[in-house]
Computed example of a mutant assay.
Amino acid sequence: MGKQSSSELPSKKMITGIYVFVLVYTVVQLLWWGLLLHQQSVQIAKYEQGALVHKMNELHHPAEFMQEMQRLHKEQQMRTFKYIGEGVIFLVLILAGAAIVYRAVWKQMKLGQQQQNFMMAVTHELKSPIAVAKLNLETLRRHKLDEEKQRKLLDATIRETNRLDQLCNNILLASQFEHRKYQPFLEHLDFSRLLKDSVEELQCRTVSHHIDSDIMPGVELQGDKFMITLMLNNLVENAIKYAPKGTNIHVKLFRSGDALKLVVSDEGEGIAQEERNKIFLKFYRIGNENTRKSKGSGLGLYLTRKIVEQHGGSITVKDNTPKGTCFEITWHDYSVQSV
């Protein structure tokens, strides 16, 4: 999560302080109400018992006096039970409502912070490739370069525009998933060939890492070509961001029993156990937004999980051997999904 600014911290503390004060004040008022009812009940009991004693002293009926005393005692017990029961119910409702409200408010504040982090990340993600592409194009326009240098600048510009294109796709697709408007275009796919072509394209765009693949041939399924390509791109580019330069990224497609598995692994530092469920949340990124060196919008893994689920699979995070992160996508009962 990103680092909270100093202007945000007092506001959150102030809101929490006001909330706790109101909650404590309400509980104290409830307890005070219970105490007043108890005192009132005791006074009523004393008054009734005094009146009964005065009445029975005049009538001189001891048996009837004892029966009336027992009746008054039971009435006092019923009053006590009534206000204690009502007080406990009100207290439970107040605490339950307070917990629900606090959770909703805290969730909203957390979402707001994540959205702010997302805007910071996206702003950086947009400005960087635009600046690089603009610089490259201005260099080509102002200077007469040899063909090799021109090709390198054009290749670099294309890589940056591809980054922009993928970022825009991620943002648009996340919005469509959020509003459940995206309908996948399912078609007959040569899954093996699609993965191989995607890995080759990613390797052409990547100079910092080596991407090797072990793709089982002949795998066919029904799927959305664009979404599956985006799924693989997000996983590989996530590995590129967090794995040290010069290390290998492995893409493997194989069959395990009745299941089909796609594994993307790297040789980075790995992901802590407590972070493995959070990384698939929208906008969530590990670390501090102000000090983080890796690029990203916090949407890649969120979209990856959505795409996998929409295609009937599941995704898990495991430790790679000897080190690194391993994303494993599983399609169970592959015989049903194959074409």
Results as ranks from 00 to 15, higher is better:
L164A: 12
L164S: 09
D165N: 12
Q166D: 00
L167W: 05
L167N: 02
C168P: 02
C168I: 13
C168H: 05
C168L: 10
N169T: 15
N169M: 13
N169K: 12
I171M: 09
I171N: 00
I171V: 12
L172K: 12
L172I: 13
L172R: 13
A174K: 00
S175L: 14
Q176L: 15
Q176G: 13
Q176A: 15
Q176C: 15
Q176M: 15
Q176R: 15
F177P: 01
F177D: 01
E178N: 14
H179P: 00
H179F: 08
R180K: 15
K181Y: 06
Y182M: 00
Q183A: 11
P184V: 12
F185K: 13
F185G: 07
F185C: 07
L186Q: 05
L186Y: 01
E187Y: 06
H188L: 07
H188A: 12
H188E: 15
H188T: 14
H188M: 11
D190N: 15
D190K: 06
D190L: 03
D190F: 05
D190Q: 04
S192E: 04
S192C: 08
R193I: 03
R193E: 02
R193W: 02
R193K: 03
L194F: 07
L194D: 11
L194K: 07
K196M: 06
D197I: 10
D197H: 10
D197Q: 13
D197P: 08
S198E: 14
S198F: 05
S198G: 07
S198K: 10
V199W: 04
V199F: 06
V199S: 06
E200T: 11
E201Y: 11
E201R: 12
E201C: 04
E201V: 09
L202S: 05
Q203A: 08
C204E: 05
C204A: 05
C204H: 08
R205G: 14
R205T: 10
T206W: 10
T206M: 07
T206D: 05
V207K: 11
V207C: 02
V207N: 04
V207M: 04
S208A: 13
S208T: 14
H209S: 05
H209P: 07
H209F: 03
H209Q: 04
H210M: 08
I211Q: 09
I211V: 11
I211D: 07
D212P: 02
D212T: 13
D212L: 10
S213G: 01
S213I: 04
D214S: 08
D214C: 01
D214T: 03
I215G: 10
I215L: 10
M216G: 01
P217F: 02
P217D: 00
G218T: 07
V219H: 00
V219N: 00
V219C: 01
V219L: 06
E220H: 14
E220V: 06
L221I: 15
L221S: 10
Q222S: 13
Q222Y: 08
Q222A: 14
G223R: 10
D224N: 09
D224E: 02
D224F: 12
K225T: 08
F226H: 07
M227S: 08
M227A: 10
T229Y: 02
T229E: 08
